[in-house]
Design a protein around this nucleic acid. Structure first.
Lengths: 353, 353
DNA sequence: TTGTAGGCGTTATCAG
DNA sequence: CTGATAACGCCTACAA
């Protein structure tokens, strides 16, 4: 197997040196705009470089400088638009600052570990990561102990890592409190409980604070990350026949799936079922019944994360102590949440349709 | 500014050689599983490598092998879930085949050029690209002439480039024909006309083939790529008062924005306005009125594109002639399209609400 | 202002 | 089976 690059020999500093009669060293300096080189030399060298279609070889540069000007970005393999939008914004921010981004996805800790090793092979200067399991971060601690810059994209407290994210616990507490304040007594919840428990914990906390009893069966963890998963999850909650009048969904994807379930089963939203989502994706705003949701500012998040990562990467010697940047999530109230109506629905009703 | 990697010296082949007493060369061979090295030597070397937490330096390897085992992936900076899902799938496919992915986004030709140069600096072995402007591909031709593997993620004919994509022209023709067959005479269209004209061309073609007159004012190009843009676009079409009874949207994002517009303005879908989208995103299926749309199989697309790119990258010498893989787009008929109803709506109606 | 020497970590070539 | 040696393309240090 031939390699891609001998096909068309790339020009190098040496080629420019040969063409102009200068030494490679002078060429290198000139191309980087050093004033140590005469203006005349710089001009001819730059012109020759353009003529030869010279492109600096980052891989050689990285080898000698021991820095690649590249960071790794690791996000979950999911179809949720919110993290995806954040990933795009992160790439943009890094690019604006002269960094390249190696990109990988992972949906299991094994894939995550493999991706991190791939990044290490590529000598990335830092890592932006939305970890699969928010409760087990030892591999990230190990990186930090080796003085390797890592910024986690999760608003979790007391992780011992640099983290930037929305305060999911507080935002979920607020969203649930909104429903409780409206008068709901039996609120279902759809969301992850093991890997990423912060949102459901916020949900629980609201029940505790407001003295509302909570049956564990009110909580269900959907399988997968899609509207279909939300639909199925809502169906399961409904079957449990707990007299729910409201739902807190840890993602708008779940919320909109649940809303579809309600439509199909003839349960009216919000009259018979209030729904609050999370992420404030655009579709929630354009849905037939607009969705109450938690807005998190992905742009600000991306900027803060990138700034922190760059600060870490530019630090000499040992890394400074980890920092947590918690951004507030803002509850946007729309049509899908209201006080509980008179008419209720039972699981029996769903069979009529 | 210190670099990230002197912070913690990484172990190298030389370190393992020193520790085990073998030469670096033997170590290199052993770690790559060469049978030229004795089993005993291999075992001790591998153990030492693990003890030293050795990670091969891809950057050094790339320098000598002249291949980085990395590809560039360049997609547009958009919020459309469909391309995003394809990008994720592409990354997965590449990763499964042992390649890393450098990721960049671009929304202008200038950004696209900058990203491509960045990729060249990183010595990527190939490029997967969804170009900003489908009508001007000269920069990609130049890459190909230099024997550089490029696969374009657009189902466009006669580009002189390797391309894998859905047959947008045909699919749009089919979608429009579906509306015409239902009896619609005045069909609006929302979609790009300059950069990515294939869908609108399919729309036009259906009019020609079926002898339906087409007023240019039936076509509007939304600004931006969002549901909001679709909403605004539909509002503009409505103001033109052309007696539209149906809409073809070149993206479900536009279609769902238009559907929201209809809801807000009291225009019923599909009774007064049939809507057909494109991309078959999950929201469309879970919308209150489910959306007729064109399904394109992103997974198959990603796999085909990656396979083609790898075939090109593994080619010795000159690249084979370009290949076009056109995947069919399948029209999925749902609730949002039906025969035109009796009641029509006028732009005046929209003011009543 | 410019040139020379050495080395970054790896692999391939060629000896032993 | 194993070990030197010479690249790959670039940058820093030191000389001229």
């Amino acid at each position: 197997m031939e390699n891609a690059l001998t096909r068309q020999r790339k020009s190098t500093l040496a080629d420019i040196a040969a063409k102009t009669g200068y030494g490679t060293n002078t060429v290198s300096l000139a191309l980087r705009g050093s004033t140590r080189i005469s203006q005349a030399a710089r001009d001819t060298i730059i012109k020759a470089a353009e003529a030869l279609d010279y492109v600096p070889n980052n891989t050689a540069k990285a080898l000698v400088l021991k820095r690649s000007n590249t960071v790794g970005m690791l996000v979950e393999y999911l179809t949720n638009p919110q993290p995806t939008a954040v990933a795009t914004a992160l790439q943009r921010e890094m690019s604006d600052r002269g960094y390249s981004v190696l990109f990988a996805t992972s949906s299991t800790p094994e894939q995550e570990a493999a991706a991190i090793e791939m990044f290490r092979r590529h000598m990335v200067d830092g890592l932006l990561i939305y970890p699969v399991d928010h409760t087990n971060l030892s591999h990230l601690h190990r990186l930090r102990e080796r003085n390797f810059p890592v910024v986690m994209l999760v608003g979790a407290r007391d992780t011992g890592l640099d983290a930037v994210g929305v305060d999911e616990f507080q935002a979920s507490y607020d969203a649930t409190t909104h429903l409780i304040a409206l008068g709901h007594k039996r609120i279902g919840a759809l969301g992850p409980t093991k890997d990423k428990p912060l949102k459901i914990e916020g949900f629980r906390h609201a029940h505790r604070v407001h003295g509302l009893p909570l049956d564990e069966r009110q909580i269900y963890e959907p399988v997968g990350f899609s509207m279909a998963a939300g639909y199925d999850g809502m169906a399961i909650l409904a079957e449990r026949d707990l007299g729910l009048t409201a739902l807190f969904a840890a993602s708008d994807m779940f919320a909109l799936g649940a809303m579809r379930w309600a439509k199909v089963k003839g349960v009216s939203v919000p009259e018979q079922l209030s729904i609050v989502g999370y992420d404030n994706i655009e579709y929630g705003e354009f849905s037939n019944t607009t969705l109450t949701s938690v807005r998190n500012d992905g742009g600000t998040l991306a900027k803060a994360a990138v700034e922190r990562l760059i600060a870490l990467m530019e630090t000499d010697g040992p890394l400074p102590p980890p920092t947590l940047t918690l951004l507030p999530g803002e509850l946007v109230v729309r049509e899908s949440s209201s006080r509980p109506g008179r008419r209720s629905w039972a699981s029996g009703q769903t069979d009529k349709l």
